[in-house]
């Protein structure tokens, strides 16, 4: 039981961005719950894109990714497309997509899936506030992922953060991309905020660009207004709370 009280250090997968990896203590931990909130409901696709990118970084090639969605998410957010998944560098052929009627069934399926060590990662996507996901349910998910080492990416659209047992909590919004010649939209770009990190600093912003060919995030070239934190050693003692106010969106 002692490992439940103090879970062993989970293997981490680095983002490849110095400031981000330093804040996270080496990257996103496998065998943990990571929550991703869409900043607004129109940012759902961007939040999903960030999640898919993070999953691609955390999954060994050839491993199956299980993507569980509620019926509501499938109706409001659209049908998940293997082509689009593949365009982001994923392997949809190794993916399984499950559409679940309600939140209770979703959480139950997620716990079952997290106990299966053969999976590479589990993505759970829900739309709206999910009352069923209380602290107990969240803790149950966290225990399952700690024991199997399968990371859970909990994707939440149109919801506001509630207390949970997650290791990290992110907020993702779409960001203007670096235009290609001919005024064409460029690579997927996200404004990412680390809202909370268990026993670690949080409250920082990054503008990330997803490089499909290298299968990794890069820091997006700056376009004026935004000045992201580049070094975070100075705030590492800041503890759990938000060390700096999120002044970008105000700007």
């Amino acid at each position: 039981m002692h490992d439940r009280a103090a879970p062993a250090e989970a293997p981490r997968r680095a983002f490849g961005i110095a400031s981000l990896d330093a804040t996270l203590g080496g990257g996103l931990a496998r065998g943990r719950v990571h929550e991703v909130y869409a900043a607004e409901s129109d940012d759902a696709a961007s939040a999903t894109g960030f999640t898919v990118g993070a999953a691609i970084g955390m999954v060994d090639p050839g491993r199956t990714v299980l993507w569980l969605r509620t019926l509501r998410a499938a109706r409001l957010g659209g049908v998940a497309q293997a082509n689009g998944w593949s365009e982001l560098g994923g392997a949809p052929g190794h993916g399984l997509v499950g559409v679940v009627g309600d939140a209770t069934a979703l959480l139950r399926a997620a716990v079952d899936a997290l106990r299966c060590t053969a999976l590479g990662a589990v993505i759970v996507e829900s739309w709206g506030t999910m009352r069923e996901l209380d602290l107990t349910a969240s803790r149950r998910l966290a225990l399952a992922t700690e024991q199997s080492g399968v990371p859970l990416l909990l994707l939440r659209h149109d919801a506001s953060p509630v207390p949970s047992a997650a290791q990290t909590r992110w907020q993702v919004a779409a960001a203007p991309s670096q235009a290609l010649p001919g005024h064409a939209p460029g690579r997927p770009t996200f404004d990412v905020t680390l809202l909370r990190q268990r026993s670690g600093p949080s409250g920082f912003d990054w503008r990330l660009e997803w490089d499909r060919d290298q299968r990794m995030f890069r820091e997006a070239p700056l376009s004026g207004v935004v000045v992201p934190f580049s070094a975070c050693g100075q705030v590492a003692t800041g503890g759990n709370g938000s060390a700096f106010p999120d002044d970008r969106r105000a700007a």
Binding site: A45, T48, G49, V52, G62, T64, G77, G78, V79, A80, Q81, A82, N83, G84, W85, S86, E87, L88, G89, A91, P92, G93, H94, S177, L180, A184, P185, G186, R187, P188, R212, D213
Partner: peptide, 19 residues
């Protein structure tokens, strides 16, 4: 597992994630 065609390198995604 089912094989899916790989996108061509250097291009941004040309097909959406959701339809």
């Amino acid at each position: 597992p089912v094989p899916w065609p790989q996108p061509s390198a250097g291009e941004p995604p040309i097909r959406p994630l959701f339809l």
